[in-house]
Design a protein around this nucleic acid. Structure first.
Length: 184
DNA sequence: CGTGTTTGACCGGCGC
DNA sequence: GCGCCGGTCAAACACG
């Protein structure tokens, strides 16, 4: 994947409110609860939810409700590489909707796709990405809404602890290709 | 040859 | 206890 569509999910490049690199506090302030059920969510608002993990209650048949993360190195292929009984680190997650033609919103980091699953209430599959930087366990998942093909929901999990690889000159290009849904 | 994608299977929690 | 469901791994493949 060398063609970088390059979209950045930040409405204000000059602002310090980067969804990923900044502290969660400032980001949380900007967004509203995203728990309204997505599929019926005819959009129009920027959904962001710093998940506090525990209250993950999915409404079974009605909700897409994300399950819990099983932490890195978890589960999977029974090769016996994960330690069981390890405590689960709960990480904050940031979700936001963007309007874009492309699914992959490149924010300047390098992502490796590690999975793709179909979600029950959506026709479009959800893609799982992980930052390829060593020691950087930032994960991200991209999902497209059924109702609005133009709306892409991106969920970031974790914080990068290494500098970006690309210059920020691309922001102009990035912003030209996307528009953020704002409730205001 | 290195890097990332594809894809099926598996894991683990929760609901029933 | 079983089955659903979301999340993840890993081998094979594709591409530069």
């Amino acid at each position: 994947m060398e063609n970088y569509p390059m979209l950045f999910p930040c409405p204000n490049p000059n602002s310090s409110n980067y969804p990923i690199s900044s502290t969660s506090g400032s980001v949380e302030g900007l967004m509203r609860n995203f728990e309204g059920e997505n599929s019926n969510n005819n959009g129009g608002f920027l959904g962001l939810r710093p998940s506090h993990d525990d209250l993950e209650k999915r409404s079974s048949s009605s909700g897409v409700g994300e399950g819990k993360s099983s932490e890195e190195g978890g589960g999977g292929g029974n090769s016996g590489k994960m330690k069981k009984g390890e405590k689960k680190a709960r990480k904050p997650r940031y979700a936001f909707q963007t309007r874009s033609q492309v699914d992959i919103l490149d924010d300047g980091y390098r992502w490796r796709k590690y999975g793709q699953k179909a979600v029950k209430n959506n026709k479009f599959p959800r893609s799982y990405y992980r930052c390829t930087h060593q020691g950087c366990n930032v994960k991200k998942q991209v999902q497209r809404l059924t109702k609005d093909e133009g709306v892409v929901v991106t969920t970031y999990e974790g914080v990068h602890n290494h500098p970006i690889e690309k210059t920020t000159d691309n922001f102009e290009h990035i912003l030209s290709q996307m528009q953020i849904y704002t409730p205001f």
